[in-house]
Write a protein that binds this DNA or RNA. Structure first.
Lengths: 222, 222
DNA sequence: GTCAGCTTGTCATGGTTGTGTCACGATACG
DNA sequence: CGTATCGTGACACAACCATGACAAGCTGAC
């Protein structure tokens, strides 16, 4: 995925960039509206993250211009909590979601995924794989017709694995995905959750394979 | 599909138009009641999106007139959150649904689809689910034949849950849905309302399930 | 005005459970 | 056989949730 980040606070921008890069996304960064316009005109983006307080103008003008150009790229607005009225007009102008600063990176990532999923797969939210059906919106899993309610972390882990089946995730990467930055969590936690998920998937034709020293991968037996 | 949008805020109107156009719909835009009447008389629309605060009068008058003319075109009302108390009168006058500003465009699209679908298969305003019948227009609930009057907030909460059964709503999202932005309301309020709703639903085969750390979901026991 | 009655959000408390760690056993691999 | 890596049952704690009580608001009647 290719993101455009419009944010004048350099440190924050750098943090977001590195986080997103870790997820395998490509991020272009603009610190000014004028830059942002140039970037947007030059390339196709899957998602735009837009701060509204910028040195050379209001993010609104960018958003307005963006939508006026019949551009359908989803936009997530980054806003301070105090700028309430701005937030309102942003949504009215066609933003797809908003995140209030300061935000948790895990939350931003979740919002991004949600917006992208909503935008791409339209109504199709549940993921099918063999005799397993996973519904992240409903928060449950169906294995051979039996409904299993997943807990928060299990859900998030499965979501990550399901969205990139066949891809290997290192434990380090999974920790990054599941926990926020300041949560200091051992990698053993991931092992525990993998174990719990495996229990839920027992009897299905989907399994989480261990690749010693590398990580985990979701496989579907043929 | 052909939509008529009645909205005096030009920026918002433009944003909605471009969004809808991207979905392949044709949208006519009226900024005044008088214009709207002309449009409505001139053409057949599949759906009307109606703002109620308009410079030359109240959208209600348009709605009344529209229905008086035996016109069956579904209408979705766009209203500010503070005007939610008007909702009953809007629905009484024949609106099919309402969306509070500011709204998420994805939500507006979903509401449009829902209304059109509902309209295709003959109109029914009340929602049935197991031995529970919910009438959002009348504001009451029938559980096993017993009529229960709901209070305003309980009503809105149940409406949100009923319109997307099986979907998990985080408390954050529910706060967003039920309260306006400048109401600074704790998430505990949602817990309280869930509790109150559960009391009303006692003895029915519909229940609000708690998904710890995730939110709430309306379930129907089989 | 004011008083009663109803709605609504907050608070404090207590119960429940999801979560991450630990310790130890199992397994892969050189 | 030794070591690094992974699996897992048990556990303690913190986070989360339910709920009764309460106070502030609102409404309408008089």
């Amino acid at each position: 995925m290719k993101y455009l980040l419009v944010e004048d606070n350099i440190e924050l921008a750098r943090a977001i960039c590195s986080r997103m890069s870790l997820d395998g996304h490509l991020v272009d960064h603009a610190a000014l509206i004028s830059e942002a316009v140039d970037y947007a005109n030059a390339g196709e983006y899957d998602l735009i993250l837009l701060d509204i307080m910028l040195p050379d103008g209001d993010g609104r003008s960018f958003l307005k211009q963006h939508r006026a150009g019949k551009n359908n790229t989803p936009v997530i607005v980054l806003t301070a909590r105090s700028q309430v009225s701005d937030r309102i007009s942003m949504l009215d102008l066609g933003a797809d979601d908003y995140v209030t600063k300061p935000f948790d990176h895990a939350e931003l990532q979740a919002r991004c995924r949600a917006v992208l999923r909503r935008n791409a797969g339209s109504a199709q939210s549940s993921i099918q794989m063999g005799n397993v059906e996973f519904d992240p919106v409903g928060g449950h899993l169906t294995v051979k017709g039996n409904v299993i309610n997943l807990r928060n972390r299990e859900l998030r882990l499965l979501e990550v694995l399901m969205n990139a089946r066949g891809q290997v995730f290192s434990k380090h990467k999974l920790v990054d995905r599941l926990f926020s930055y300041d949560d200091d969590v051992s990698e053993n936690a991931v092992e525990v959750y993998i174990g719990r998920l495996r229990k839920h998937l027992d009897g299905s034709d989907v399994q989480i394979k261990t690749l010693r020293g590398l990580g985990y991968r979701l496989d579907h037996d043929a």
